[in-house]
C-alpha cells in the first residue's frame, strides 16, 4: 500500500513547519528527504510514524511502519536480542538472523551500553527490519557515525533494502548520501515538498559520476547553497 499525504500541516505555536504538504511514497521505492536544518524533516517523519497527535491533514499510511531514529534508542536494560524482539511474537531465530544480517550475530547477549556507536546503529536497523515493514523511516540514522562506518552502513542499508524491498524514507541533510542511496530525492522547504527529483543512475554509484555531479549542483542550489559557498 502506497503512502499518501495530502494537505498535511503542523505548526508549533505561531511557527508553521508543515504547510499543506502533499506527498506520495511508492512501494519499494528508496526516497531521500533533504532540507535545511529546522525545515521540518523530523516533524514530517514523526507524523508518518504516528508519533505526532497534533498534525492535521490526510495521512494515509500502512500499519506496517518501522522507525530508526538518529540516536539508536536501544532499551538499555535489555540485552541486544531482547531489544530486537521487543514487542514481537516472532521466534528468536528470526531476531538472530536479523542481527546476523547487520553483522552482530555474536553480540546478541551484549548490553546496549557496551556497544560502539556504529554497532548500536546497526542494531537499531536490525530492530526495524526484523518487523519486515512496508515502510521504513530513517531519521538521519547515519549522521553520528564516523565516515568509514557510514560507508559500511550505507552498503548494508542498500543490501537490506534490495532484499526486503520496503518503501524507505531516509531523512538526511547530506546531499551525497541522498545521491548515493536513493531512487528519488525530495527537498523540503517552506513546509512543502519543493523539489522532487528521480535518480536513475545504476548502483553502486560513485560521487564523481557526471550525472550525479549535475544533480548535486541542482540540489545544493535548491537548498540555497552554491557549490562554492552560500549564494
Amino acid at each position: 500500500m502506497a503512502t499518501r499525504l495530502s494537505g498535511v500541516a503542523r505548526a508549533f505555536g505561531d511557527r508553521v513547519v508543515l504547510d499543506s504538504l502533499d506527498l506520495e511514497l511508492r512501494d519499494g521505492e528508496f526516497t531521500a528527504l533533504l532540507g535545511r536544518s529546522g525545515s521540518g524533516k523530523s516533524t514530517l517523519l514523526r507524523a508518518l510514524a504516528g508519533l505526532d497527535d497534533e498534525v492535521t491533514g490526510a495521512i494515509d499510511v500502512t500499519d506496517s511502519v518501522a522507525v530508526a531514529f538518529q540516536e539508536p534508542r536501544l532499551v538499555p536494560w535489555k540485552r541486544l536480542l531482547a531489544n530486537i524482539t521487543l514487542g514481537l511474537d516472532a521466534p528468536a531465530d528470526k531476531a538472530k538472523a536479523a542481527l546476523a544480517e547487520v553483522g552482530l550475530a555474536e553480540r546478541s547477549d551484549a548490553w546496549p551500553l557496551t556497544l560502539s556507536g556504529g554497532e548500536a546503529q546497526r542494531a537499531s536497523l536490525a530492530r526495524a527490519l526484523v518487523r519486515e515493514p512496508e515502510l521504513l523511516l530513517l531519521d538521519e540514522p547515519f549522521s553520528a557515525l564516523d565516515a568509514l562506518t557510514r560507508i559500511t552502513i550505507h552498503q548494508l542499508v542498500l543490501e537490506l533494502w534490495a532484499r526486503h524491498r520496503p518503501a524507505v524514507l531516509l531523512v538526511t541533510h547530506d546531499v551525497d548520501e541522498a545521491l548515493l542511496l536513493a531512487d528519488r530525492v525530495l527537498v523540503l522547504d517552506e513546509g512543502r515538498i519543493a523539489h522532487d527529483i528521480s535518480i536513475t543512475a545504476e548502483r553502486p554509484r560513485h560521487r564523481e559520476d557526471p550525472a550525479l555531479v549535475t544533480l548535486r549542483n541542482t540540489l545544493l542550489a535548491a537548498l540555497g547553497v552554491s557549490p562554492e559557498g552560500r549564494s
Binding site: A49, G50, V67, E71, R73, G87, R127
Partner: peptide
C-alpha cells in the same frame, strides 16, 4: 520519553 516513543513505534 524517547524510549516511550520507541515503544510506540514498536507497537507495545
Amino acid at each position: 520519553g524517547k524510549l516511550a516513543e520507541v515503544a510506540k513505534t514498536l507497537k507495545l
